[in-house]
Nucleic acid binder design. Structure first.
Lengths: 208, 208
DNA sequence: CCGCTGTTGTCACACCTGTGATAGCATTTG
DNA sequence: CAAATGCTATCACAGGTGTGACAACAGCGG
């Protein structure tokens, strides 16, 4: 095979440059010429790897989807088995913090993902990835809650997904500009209310 | 005075056209020429009323901010005084549903607002409005929760804001594509958990 | 009536975009 | 060595954008 240069690595470099541009200027600022400049390559090279503009966008959204998927499945659900009360809260917290912009790496991914999610409303090419992610997220969280024997896991998962989405949006944009500690505290408060207060009608509260 | 035509009405017509365009194509599709076409006016006329592109954008974000502000203060907090349990949930629910995309009018406003909030991350001209809105929202909800004698109103308001933001994002984009009933049910479940279960550490759960 | 003024309508210009086409380079393979 | 192939680098073109400039029109004031 002829592999003068690591093709996959090159593609990842370009996508990384695209991410930086997405953070700095938003999706509408992501032109081929700017990506070329940011990645230090010639526009001809960029077009050699992703021959379309559209293709580059799809590759970028796919990459962020892949990373988020990894984060989603990093902590297996079965480690939660048997946990109740505060340990359960802590375990879920550590896991779900994977999805929040609590450090620079996650912040970039959150921003990029948010841009694509919003763009997907109008541009169908992003939908396969964003819809798949949404479905996976609901599924995985629901499963985790079921393991934790939470009453009505699907509904509680829905709430958690909403909280996560709201926190990301608020912290990533200057809408609310939440600090990292504020995000984590809010998530923890929510998980605590789900796991230790058991607002479900029939089940009595559990104390450890 | 020479008022051949209602200037304010004209401006509102143009902004309405801009909203339709925002819904259909997103913020990046909002060009002067397209707004002109959508509003049925000549581009010269549009530039006569809003002489800048930037100016039109600011007028649009200001308008959506004004409407959301109206919705926020439509139900005064003092009607909540003395309410507990399910009636308190219902009162808050009716009020906060003002902010969710549960009908076409609110859906348009939610979409427009979401576009501007996300754009504000990168474009500072939207920040005054979006930041003011975020602050007002937190303040008003915190006040309402205080009236309802909720434990730690600021933190609970933070959670509610997150839930609202997440629900709007999920229902407005194809990320999760939540239905109207699903949104309302999730909000209600959350309010119920805040108001009737009192997850505060010290107080024991209340059953009615 | 004329003229003032708010409103429309149309140019042209510079800038940026994606893209087709194509030539030149570099390096590996035969 | 020669050839093939992956890669880089440019050119030109059509389309869209905001904007400056300015002419043309409409209706009210005098």
């Amino acid at each position: 095979m002829i592999a003068r240069i690591d093709l996959d690595q090159r593609r990842k470099d370009v996508i990384e440059a695209a991410f930086r541009l997405l953070v700095a200027e938003g999706l509408s600022g992501l032109s081929l010429r700017k990506v070329s400049a940011e990645s230090g390559l010639n526009i001809g090279s960029v077009r050699h790897y992703f021959d379309d503009h559209r293709n580059l966008l799809v590759a970028a959204v796919t990459e962020v989807g892949r990373r988020m998927g990894k984060r989603l499945t990093r902590y297996p659900a079965d480690v939660l088995a048997g946990l109740t009360g505060e340990p359960a809260v802590e375990a879920l917290q550590v896991w779900l913090e994977e999805l929040l912009p609590i450090d620079e790496e996650r912040r970039v991914e959150s921003i990029v993902l948010t841009e694509f999610i919003v763009a997907a409303r109008v541009n169908p090419i992003f939908r396969p990835v964003t819809e798949q992610m949404a479905a996976d997220m609901r599924q995985v969280i629901t499963d985790a809650l079921r393991v934790l024997e939470v009453h009505d896991p699907a509904e509680e998962a829905e709430r958690i997904v909403a909280v996560l989405g709201g926190l990301v949006l608020d912290s990533v944009t200057p809408h609310g500009s939440l600090g990292v500690e504020r995000i984590r505290a809010t998530l923890r408060a929510h998980l605590r209310s789900v796991l230790v207060a058991t607002p479900g009608a029939d089940a009595p509260p559990i104390d450890d």
